[in-house]
Structures are given as C-alpha cells and as structure tokens.
C-alpha cells in the first residue's frame, strides 16, 4: 500500500471542532489530551481612529490538524528508543508503547504539535490514523464526523490531487518534515502571511 495522508478543505471548515470531539470520544481521551486540534488562525489589526470609529483588517480562518504522518518525520529522528516508527506499508507514524519512555522529545520537536506525553499512561500519544477502522475499510473517525466534509483521508497521491501540500503560515515550510497533509485553503487562508497568529493558544496546548 502507498503512503497515506490527510486532506483538509479550508474553504469548507467552519471551525466547529466536531473532528476534535469525535476523536477524543472515540479514543476516550481525558482533559488536556487530544490527537487532533483546530487552530483559529488570526491575521490583521483592529484600530480605532480619532473620531472613535473602528476599522479592521482582521481575518480568521481555521486549520484542523492531527499528525501528518510525515515523509521526513523529525519525531522519529529524535526518538531515543525507536518507539516512534513509520509503518512500511501505510507510512502511518505510530508509537510503540512497549518501547516509549515518555521522554517527550517527539513532542518538543514536532512542528505540528502532534504528539504529547500522556502523564497518566506514561508514554507519548498521538493520532495514528485510526488503523483499526482503516483495516475494516472505514474512514477515520474525524473524517467521518466532520459535518462540512472538510476532511479527507487516503493515499497521499489521491489527496495531492485535491489540494496543495501544507506549507503556508502558520504551518512550517513543507521541506521541514514533508507532511502528508494536503490543503485546499480558504480565501483568507490563501492570503495568510508570516503575521498570522494562533487565537486559541490555551485550547490547543
């Protein structure tokens, strides 16, 4: 099988976070643990002039992110135990919990904020692409749950036909980890520059 990956349609996403909740529910994740996060990306300024009239250039767009099962995964490069590994057949990146020491280096190095150490379990946890559902021929939970049909999952080749490889702010340049995430940006997302900031930082930590 070829490398698998995600598609995200920014022109459809409403920022409802159903994907986040569906994933948390499906994997019974507690407070503070999430395999998928929706980032509220903000750019521009709101100002008040001398006459007290407000004007704004603010734009907000959303970005739903799990693990991108990268083709140059830095999480695997830094992992001291080889617990973080890429499946040869599917390209999905997963944590071997029998090897993971919970050092958190994958969390510190991933530029997509995907893995985190679940203190209660003592090891790193992250989106592993719903392998059980894939084996049963079903779509990942987050993809299935999205009411706007903004998420897709399949071979990287098929996803690439639907969007561009994720590379624009607030995401890092694609060459950093070669993410298998393909995006159709919203109008505001397409125009985003280096000034874009995350509006829901506390929620996405």
């Amino acid at each position: 099988m070829a490398q698998l990956g995600f598609f995200f349609d920014g022109s459809r996403c409403t920022g409802c976070k159903t994907c986040v909740v569906a994933c948390k529910d499906g994997f019974d994740l507690g407070v503070g643990v999430a395999f998928r996060r929706v980032y509220e990306c903000v750019e521009g300024r709101t100002e008040k002039d001398g006459a007290g009239i407000c004007s704004t250039t603010c734009r907000v767009f959303y970005l739903s992110l799990g693990c991108n099962h990268c083709s140059r995964p830095v999480c695997i490069e830094v992992c001291p135990t080889q617990a973080m590994a890429k499946d040869e057949a599917t390209g999905l990146v997963a944590v071997n919990t029998r090897k993971c020491i919970g050092c958190g280096y994958c969390h510190l190095a991933c530029p997509y904020n995907a893995p985190q150490v679940d203190k209660s379990r003592g090891h790193s946890v992250k989106c592993e692409g719903c392998p059980d559902r894939l084996a049963a021929g079903e779509a990942p939970l987050c993809v299935l749950a999205c009411p706007a049909r903004a998420l897709g999952f399949g071979t990287a080749e098929a996803m690439a036909a639907r969007g561009e490889r994720a590379a624009t702010p607030p995401l890092p340049p694609a060459e950093e980890t070669c993410p298998n995430l393909y995006i159709k940006p919203s109008r505001d997302g397409r125009a985003a520059g280096d000034g874009v900031a995350i509006g829901n930082v506390a929620e996405t930590r």
């Binding site: 510190l108 530029p111 997509y112 904020n113 995401l171 890092p172 340049p173 996405t204």
Partner: peptide, 8 residues
C-alpha cells in the same frame, strides 16, 4: 522552547 510551525 519553540519550533518552526506550531510547537511551543
């Protein structure tokens, strides 16, 4: 601590 992209 800060990564390129979204890590802090």
């Amino acid at each position: 601590h800060l990564t390129v992209g979204l890590g802090v």
